[in-house]
Nucleic acid binder design. Sequence first.
DNA 1: TTAACATTTAACTTAAATGTTAAATGTATT
DNA 2: AATACATTTAACATTTAAGTTAAATGTTAA
Lengths: 91, 91
Amino acid sequence: MGIQNTLKALSDPVRREILNMLKGEQMSAGEITEKFDITGAAISRHLSVLKEADLVRDKRDGKFIIYELNASVLEEIMLWITELKGDNSND
Amino acid sequence: MGIQNTLKALSDPVRREILNMLKGEQMSAGEITEKFDITGAAISRHLSVLKEADLVRDKRDGKFIIYELNASVLEEIMLWITELKGDNSND
DNA sequence: TTAACATTTAACTTAAATGTTAAATGTATT
DNA sequence: AATACATTTAACATTTAAGTTAAATGTTAA
């Protein structure tokens, strides 16, 4: 994990869009794929990058694999940025 | 500009380290280079990526080119993350 | 157990990113 | 003006990332 994986995952626009789609609701890989103009295989790899970064969680539901957002990892990024900005009110 | 450039710039560990070094003080390209095990040319390109993303500003001082942090761009990232996390207290 | 469907994994291609060395640019010094 | 110094830019090699198609895996239903 770590900030490197997280920022790498966030640096791709398709992956950011996926995260945004998962904000409100859980979705299957197929539903996610429908929203893009790239193949399911490509989406699947994007999902695995997001999973690697722990930005999403997945679970199987019958034929489908359902993805949900895990935004808690982003706390670390917030912290890194906050420190960089010199807001050390919590040092 | 935009979130894409910013996150792309942040996704490299050398560039993040540069930003961290610039947190407290301004530094010349040469001083920055000294801290790494890669050539000045490589650092120079990293600096230009950071500049492109408006994460740093530069100015010439005689023979030297001095870099300083511009953390204000990170506000946008904070906002994006905040929205993703569903903290819509400011909608 | 076979067929159909959903998703992932593998093999491959292409494009982009990172590093190197060498040349170019700009400033200072003599 | 010539040399030295600081930095950037160009040309190139290597690695990494993102996409494609095809094969593999896992689940459901006939």
